[in-house]
């Protein structure tokens, strides 16, 4: 019972904060609402008993990515008049209707019984031990490629940040 309560509360909170994110004009407020949106998503995940995933979700999104977001937004230091700029009503309509129509089609076509919950529930066993095992077993190559990707990212960021051109 308590879990259903949490589920409903977290999903309502997620929708509310998502709406607030896209309607705020000040990017810093928008970022803060996005953080609370991501936290409510993490609560949603933890009601499915996927505690590890939810912890990682908070760590990666709220901890790393959103802080970077906030940092960049503050670094840009947008002026008042630039923040006042608004989209035209046509663009607003387009940006609202396009995602809604895609969502309606998908939700209308996808029956809940189609979703293979038995396979998804295997995720329940995710623990730190199993995750590390999977990383060096089934996803060995993916893990190695990510490490090469990080080398690349270092090269790129050094190239961009170097003073002497």
């Amino acid at each position: 019972m308590l879990r259903e309560l949490f589920f409903v509360a977290a999903s309502l909170l997620a929708i509310l904060t998502a709406l607030l994110t896209v309607t705020r004009k000040n990017p810093i407020y928008a970022t803060f609402f996005l953080i609370s949106h991501l936290i409510s998503i993490a609560i949603l995940i933890s009601t499915l008993k996927l505690y590890y995933l939810s912890a990682i979700h908070i760590l990666v999104y709220t901890g790393a990515i959103m802080i970077l977001f906030l940092f960049v937004v503050m670094l840009l230091n947008l002026k008042e008049e630039e923040l006042e700029k608004d989209f035209s009503i046509h663009l607003k309509l387009l940006y609202t209707l396009a995602p809604i129509s895609v969502m309606v089609i998908i939700v209308g076509q996808l029956k809940p019984q189609d979703i293979n919950l038995s396979k998804l529930s295997q995720l329940n066993v995710i623990s730190f031990e199993n995750a590390t095992k999977a990383l060096f077993d089934k996803y060995f190559l993916a893990f190695e490629i990510v490490s090469a990707l990080i080398i690349l990212a270092i090269i790129g960021s050094i190239l961009i940040a170097k003073k002497k051109v």
């Binding site: 996803y139 190559l141 993916a142 490629i145 990510v146 090469a148 990707l149 690349l152 990212a153 090269i155 790129g156 190239l159 961009i160 051109v165």
Partner: peptide, 22 residues
């Protein structure tokens, strides 16, 4: 997973290469 990862691998390299002339 591999498709997405390698697509990103090639993309990220391409982003840096496109901006080499700073």
């Amino acid at each position: 997973l591999m498709m997405f990862l390698n697509l990103e691998f090639v993309s990220i390299t391409s982003y840096i290469m496109a901006g080499l002339l700073r």
